[in-house]
Computed example of a mutant assay.
Amino acid sequence: MKKNIYLIAVLLVVTLLVGTGFISRDSFDFSAYSTEGLELNYNVPTEAEISEFAAPVAPKYYLFLGKTYVGFKEALGFKESRGNYHITNPFGYMGKYQFSAATLRILGIKNSDNFLYDTRQQEAAFLAYTSLNKWVLRKDIKRYSGKKIAGIKVTESGILAAAHLAGAGNVKKFLRTAGEDRFEDANGASIRYYLKKFSGYDTSHIVPNRRPMVM
Protein backbone atom coordinates (compact mmCIF):
# COMPACT_ATOMS: atom_id res chain seq x y z
CA MET A 1 0.00 0.00 0.00
CA LYS A 2 2.81 2.40 0.94
CA LYS A 3 4.57 1.51 -2.30
CA ASN A 4 1.48 2.45 -4.30
CA ILE A 5 1.14 5.77 -2.47
CA TYR A 6 4.83 6.51 -3.12
CA LEU A 7 4.43 5.68 -6.82
CA ILE A 8 1.36 7.91 -7.12
CA ALA A 9 3.22 10.78 -5.40
CA VAL A 10 6.16 10.45 -7.83
CA LEU A 11 3.80 10.46 -10.82
CA LEU A 12 2.06 13.59 -9.55
CA VAL A 13 5.38 15.40 -9.11
CA VAL A 14 6.55 14.40 -12.61
CA THR A 15 3.21 15.45 -14.09
CA LEU A 16 3.44 18.81 -12.34
CA LEU A 17 6.98 19.45 -13.55
CA VAL A 18 6.18 18.50 -17.12
CA GLY A 19 3.01 20.55 -17.14
CA THR A 20 4.67 23.70 -15.84
CA GLY A 21 7.43 23.29 -18.40
CA PHE A 22 4.94 23.91 -21.19
CA ILE A 23 3.36 27.04 -19.71
CA SER A 24 3.73 29.82 -22.26
CA ARG A 25 5.43 33.12 -21.51
CA ASP A 26 2.13 34.89 -22.08
CA SER A 27 0.39 32.91 -19.34
CA PHE A 28 3.16 33.32 -16.74
CA ASP A 29 3.57 36.46 -14.65
CA PHE A 30 7.19 37.66 -14.64
CA SER A 31 6.43 40.93 -12.88
CA ALA A 32 7.70 39.57 -9.58
CA TYR A 33 11.19 39.12 -11.00
CA SER A 34 13.61 42.06 -11.23
CA THR A 35 17.37 42.66 -11.64
CA GLU A 36 17.19 45.96 -9.78
CA GLY A 37 20.04 46.34 -7.26
CA LEU A 38 22.04 43.40 -8.66
CA GLU A 39 25.65 43.87 -9.84
CA LEU A 40 25.59 42.63 -13.39
CA ASN A 41 28.68 42.17 -15.56
CA TYR A 42 28.01 41.92 -19.29
CA ASN A 43 31.48 41.38 -20.71
CA VAL A 44 30.45 41.42 -24.35
CA PRO A 45 32.57 43.56 -26.72
CA THR A 46 30.90 45.80 -29.25
CA GLU A 47 31.44 45.53 -33.01
CA ALA A 48 33.61 48.66 -32.92
CA GLU A 49 35.80 47.17 -30.17
CA ILE A 50 36.24 43.97 -32.16
CA SER A 51 37.16 45.78 -35.39
CA GLU A 52 39.62 47.98 -33.50
CA PHE A 53 41.79 45.11 -32.34
CA ALA A 54 41.08 42.32 -34.76
CA ALA A 55 43.13 42.28 -37.96
CA PRO A 56 40.93 42.09 -41.06
CA VAL A 57 40.93 38.61 -42.48
CA ALA A 58 40.36 38.48 -46.20
CA PRO A 59 39.46 35.10 -47.68
CA LYS A 60 42.02 33.74 -50.10
CA TYR A 61 41.02 31.92 -53.24
CA TYR A 62 43.50 30.10 -55.41
CA LEU A 63 42.38 28.85 -58.79
CA PHE A 64 45.18 27.06 -60.60
CA LEU A 65 44.22 26.43 -64.19
CA GLY A 66 47.68 25.44 -65.38
CA LYS A 67 48.20 24.76 -69.06
CA THR A 68 44.64 23.64 -69.74
CA TYR A 69 42.36 25.09 -72.43
CA VAL A 70 40.54 27.05 -69.72
CA GLY A 71 43.89 28.38 -68.54
CA PHE A 72 44.69 29.34 -72.14
CA LYS A 73 41.50 31.28 -72.80
CA GLU A 74 41.51 32.96 -69.39
CA ALA A 75 45.13 34.05 -69.76
CA LEU A 76 44.41 35.40 -73.24
CA GLY A 77 41.23 37.12 -72.06
CA PHE A 78 43.14 38.76 -69.22
CA LYS A 79 45.85 39.97 -71.61
CA GLU A 80 43.28 41.38 -74.01
CA SER A 81 40.92 43.14 -71.58
CA ARG A 82 41.75 42.17 -67.99
CA GLY A 83 38.82 39.76 -68.37
CA ASN A 84 36.25 42.53 -68.87
CA TYR A 85 33.33 41.31 -70.98
CA HIS A 86 31.77 44.77 -71.34
CA ILE A 87 34.70 46.88 -72.52
CA THR A 88 35.26 48.48 -75.92
CA ASN A 89 38.75 49.85 -76.56
CA PRO A 90 39.50 53.11 -78.42
CA PHE A 91 39.93 51.17 -81.67
CA GLY A 92 36.48 49.57 -81.49
CA TYR A 93 37.53 46.10 -80.34
CA MET A 94 34.93 44.60 -78.06
CA GLY A 95 34.54 42.31 -75.09
CA LYS A 96 36.75 40.05 -73.06
CA TYR A 97 38.65 38.80 -76.11
CA GLN A 98 38.58 42.09 -78.04
CA PHE A 99 36.81 41.16 -81.26
CA SER A 100 36.35 43.54 -84.16
CA ALA A 101 32.90 43.94 -85.70
CA ALA A 102 34.24 42.43 -88.94
CA THR A 103 35.40 39.27 -87.19
CA LEU A 104 32.06 38.94 -85.41
CA ARG A 105 30.24 39.10 -88.75
CA ILE A 106 32.39 36.22 -90.02
CA LEU A 107 31.15 34.20 -87.04
CA GLY A 108 27.53 35.14 -87.74
CA ILE A 109 27.20 37.75 -84.99
CA LYS A 110 25.61 40.98 -86.19
CA ASN A 111 24.39 42.64 -83.00
CA SER A 112 27.49 44.14 -81.40
CA ASP A 113 25.58 45.80 -78.56
CA ASN A 114 24.02 42.51 -77.50
CA PHE A 115 27.40 40.80 -77.85
CA LEU A 116 28.94 43.06 -75.21
CA TYR A 117 26.44 41.88 -72.60
CA ASP A 118 26.16 38.23 -73.59
CA THR A 119 29.02 36.44 -71.85
CA ARG A 120 28.07 33.03 -73.23
CA GLN A 121 28.12 34.36 -76.77
CA GLN A 122 31.56 35.84 -76.18
CA GLU A 123 32.91 32.51 -74.95
CA ALA A 124 31.32 30.74 -77.92
CA ALA A 125 32.83 33.33 -80.28
CA PHE A 126 36.28 32.75 -78.85
CA LEU A 127 36.07 29.00 -79.36
CA ALA A 128 34.63 29.43 -82.86
CA TYR A 129 37.30 31.91 -83.94
CA THR A 130 40.07 29.75 -82.48
CA SER A 131 38.73 26.72 -84.37
CA LEU A 132 38.72 28.79 -87.58
CA ASN A 133 42.33 29.88 -87.04
CA LYS A 134 43.30 26.30 -86.32
CA TRP A 135 41.83 25.25 -89.66
CA VAL A 136 43.60 28.06 -91.56
CA LEU A 137 46.92 27.33 -89.83
CA ARG A 138 46.64 23.53 -89.63
CA LYS A 139 49.61 22.92 -91.97
CA ASP A 140 51.77 25.52 -90.22
CA ILE A 141 50.95 24.05 -86.82
CA LYS A 142 52.07 20.65 -88.04
CA ARG A 143 55.19 22.02 -89.74
CA TYR A 144 56.52 24.41 -87.12
CA SER A 145 55.38 23.07 -83.73
CA GLY A 146 58.42 22.21 -81.61
CA LYS A 147 60.80 24.31 -83.73
CA LYS A 148 62.44 27.58 -82.73
CA ILE A 149 61.73 30.74 -84.70
CA ALA A 150 63.20 34.10 -83.71
CA GLY A 151 64.44 32.46 -80.52
CA ILE A 152 60.95 31.28 -79.51
CA LYS A 153 59.81 27.67 -79.29
CA VAL A 154 56.71 27.37 -81.46
CA THR A 155 53.67 25.56 -80.04
CA GLU A 156 50.10 25.15 -81.23
CA SER A 157 48.67 27.32 -78.46
CA GLY A 158 51.21 30.04 -79.16
CA ILE A 159 50.27 30.03 -82.85
CA LEU A 160 46.55 30.23 -82.03
CA ALA A 161 47.09 33.08 -79.58
CA ALA A 162 49.19 34.98 -82.12
CA ALA A 163 46.45 34.43 -84.73
CA HIS A 164 43.92 35.91 -82.32
CA LEU A 165 46.13 38.98 -82.05
CA ALA A 166 47.29 39.46 -85.63
CA GLY A 167 45.13 37.24 -87.83
CA ALA A 168 46.07 33.90 -89.33
CA GLY A 169 47.58 35.48 -92.46
CA ASN A 170 50.15 37.52 -90.54
CA VAL A 171 51.09 34.49 -88.46
CA LYS A 172 51.68 32.50 -91.65
CA LYS A 173 54.02 35.23 -92.92
CA PHE A 174 55.89 35.34 -89.61
CA LEU A 175 56.44 31.59 -89.50
CA ARG A 176 57.31 31.18 -93.18
CA THR A 177 59.86 34.02 -93.14
CA ALA A 178 61.48 32.69 -89.94
CA GLY A 179 60.33 35.73 -88.04
CA GLU A 180 61.50 38.34 -90.55
CA ASP A 181 57.96 39.47 -91.40
CA ARG A 182 56.93 40.97 -88.09
CA PHE A 183 53.66 42.38 -86.83
CA GLU A 184 52.68 44.65 -83.96
CA ASP A 185 49.20 45.87 -83.07
CA ALA A 186 48.31 49.43 -82.10
CA ASN A 187 49.30 48.70 -78.49
CA GLY A 188 52.71 47.34 -79.44
CA ALA A 189 51.89 43.65 -78.87
CA SER A 190 53.76 41.39 -81.29
CA ILE A 191 53.39 37.92 -82.75
CA ARG A 192 56.70 36.97 -81.18
CA TYR A 193 55.47 38.04 -77.74
CA TYR A 194 52.23 36.05 -78.06
CA LEU A 195 54.06 32.96 -79.30
CA LYS A 196 56.19 33.05 -76.16
CA LYS A 197 53.58 34.13 -73.59
CA PHE A 198 50.96 31.58 -74.63
CA SER A 199 53.29 28.69 -75.33
CA GLY A 200 52.55 25.15 -74.21
CA TYR A 201 48.83 25.24 -73.39
CA ASP A 202 46.68 22.22 -74.24
CA THR A 203 44.53 23.23 -77.21
CA SER A 204 44.49 19.77 -78.74
CA HIS A 205 40.73 19.27 -78.31
CA ILE A 206 39.87 22.31 -80.49
CA VAL A 207 38.53 20.95 -83.77
CA PRO A 208 39.60 22.86 -86.89
CA ASN A 209 36.52 24.35 -88.51
CA ARG A 210 36.45 26.09 -91.86
CA ARG A 211 33.08 27.79 -91.33
CA PRO A 212 32.30 28.10 -87.61
CA MET A 213 29.10 29.93 -86.73
CA VAL A 214 27.92 31.16 -83.35
CA MET A 215 24.23 30.46 -82.95
Results as ranks from 00 to 15, higher is better:
residue 1 M to R: 14
residue 1 M to L: 06
residue 3 K to M: 09
residue 3 K to F: 11
residue 3 K to R: 15
residue 5 I to R: 00
residue 9 A to V: 11
residue 12 L to N: 03
residue 14 V to P: 07
residue 16 L to N: 05
residue 17 L to H: 05
residue 19 G to R: 10
residue 26 D to P: 04
residue 28 F to S: 14
residue 28 F to T: 15
residue 31 S to R: 15
residue 33 Y to C: 08
residue 33 Y to F: 14
residue 36 E to C: 01
residue 46 T to K: 07
residue 46 T to M: 12
residue 47 E to A: 13
residue 48 A to I: 08
residue 51 S to N: 11
residue 56 P to T: 10
residue 57 V to I: 10
residue 59 P to K: 03
residue 66 G to K: 10
residue 70 V to I: 15
residue 71 G to P: 02
residue 75 A to C: 08
residue 76 L to Q: 11
residue 78 F to E: 14
residue 88 T to C: 04
residue 89 N to M: 09
residue 90 P to W: 03
residue 94 M to F: 05
residue 94 M to K: 06
residue 109 I to R: 01
residue 111 N to K: 12
residue 115 F to C: 04
residue 116 L to Y: 01
residue 123 E to W: 01
residue 123 E to T: 03
residue 124 A to S: 14
residue 125 A to P: 02
residue 126 F to W: 07
residue 126 F to C: 01
residue 133 N to G: 03
residue 139 K to E: 13
residue 143 R to H: 12
residue 151 G to E: 12
residue 152 I to P: 01
residue 156 E to C: 02
residue 156 E to R: 04
residue 160 L to N: 04
residue 162 A to H: 07
residue 162 A to G: 06
residue 163 A to L: 07
residue 173 K to H: 09
residue 179 G to E: 08
residue 180 E to D: 11
residue 187 N to P: 02
residue 193 Y to A: 14
residue 194 Y to N: 03
residue 196 K to S: 13
residue 196 K to I: 11
residue 197 K to T: 15
residue 200 G to E: 05
residue 204 S to Y: 06
residue 205 H to V: 09
residue 205 H to T: 15
residue 213 M to S: 12
residue 214 V to H: 00
residue 215 M to Y: 10
residue 215 M to P: 00
